[in-house]
């Protein structure tokens, strides 16, 4: 009896004892290493996105300082960092959603294919058409059917297109939702589960053929199965679309991204602390604050 008890105890300890930091880092790195690296070989679409000296304010509060990042074609970039460090704010400056907050201001440039999207006389609806966004909370249009939701971008941006059926199927397939909804395309968007709704939102974002897809914690409300499916989708998308994903899940960052940017605020505005290939961020980060964060010592 006693021996048995001890054995159990031993096993339990083995599970619950936190492995030391080095182990986590190397396990994340090994996840990152196992993924196919496509960014180096494929330079699929010609588009590229670059943030130059981006600052952001809410009222007089400076929340983001001097972010320089470039997102070349065919690359998935993960943005990580503790809560409140300005990741979402940065993401929203990239497709001009930031300016919907009445007191919001920004400085710097965001170049899409070399052209500043904040340049005077820019048609902001065209910008958002090229730079799509998936939000943290699934937000399908409940007054539309599933099919209409997928095609809603065309209607909203007044794009004419033939063979809409094909497009609908293609987008739903790419978002990993087609098999689940192909028999009920006419039911309401709100009738899906949370994970299905999120994939519907991804399909909707894909339907307008964006060059860039910004994703703000797209899997935070999803089960592991839906999460994996969305990660697969992201990997596939990366061949034709620039993907920028904000995530709190280190494993996810390691699994889907080619490059990772680490944001941090130390009292003042949030800053980009380190930007490097994902493998390096997780195996041998240069900044000790990055190391502390990815090993779970703070944040």
């Amino acid at each position: 009896m006693i021996r048995l008890f001890n054995e159990n105890r031993y096993e339990r300890d083995a599970v619950s004892t936190p492995p030391n930091e080095g182990e986590i880092v190397s396990s994340l790195a090994s996840v990152a290493n196992r993924l196919p690296r496509i960014s180096n070989e494929v330079q699929a679409s010609g588009a590229d996105l670059e943030a130059r000296g981006v600052h952001a304010w809410f009222g007089s509060r400076h929340v983001l300082a001097d972010v320089n990042l470039s997102f070349p074609a065919g690359r998935v970039t993960a943005l990580i960092g503790p809560s409140g460090c300005g990741k979402s704010t940065f993401l929203r400056t990239l497709n001009r959603m930031h300016e919907f907050v009445p007191s919001a201001a920004m400085a710097g440039e965001v170049l899409l294919d070399g052209v500043d999207i904040y340049k005077q006389g820019t048609d902001v609806t065209k910008i958002r058409l090229k730079i799509g966004m998936v939000f943290q909370k699934p937000n399908p249009f409940p007054s539309m059917t599933i099919g209409e939701n997928v095609l809603s971008g065309l209607k909203l941006a007044q794009i004419k297109r033939s063979n809409k059926e094909d497009l609908m199927e293609e987008c739903l397939t790419r978002a990993g939702l087609w098999n689940e909804v192909k028999d009920r395309l006419n039911s309401h968007g709100g009738s899906l589960s949370g994970g299905q709704q999120q994939r519907l939102c991804i399909a909707r974002a894909l339907a307008v053929a964006p060059e860039v897809l910004l994703m703000d914690e797209p899997c935070s409300s999803l089960d592991p199965g839906s999460t994996l499916r969305i990660e697969e989708t992201i990997r596939q998308l990366s061949q034709s679309v620039i993907v920028v994903i904000v995530t709190h899940n280190m494993q996810q960052a390691a699994r889907v991204s080619d490059y990772t940017g680490f944001f941090l605020t130390e009292g003042g505005p949030g800053r980009l602390i380190e930007y490097a290939p994902t493998r390096e961020i997780f195996s041998r980060p240069k900044d000790e604050r990055t190391e502390a964060y990815v090993t779970g010592r703070f944040g």
Partner: peptide
């Protein structure tokens, strides 16, 4: 969030109103 979803899809103000505000 619905308003933002529409804008993020490249909606003009009027098409956003028709797709989101009026149905709601």
């Amino acid at each position: 969030d619905r308003v933002q979803a529409a804008y993020a899809l490249g909606a003009t103000r009027w098409s956003m109103i028709r797709a989101v505000v009026l149905p709601f």
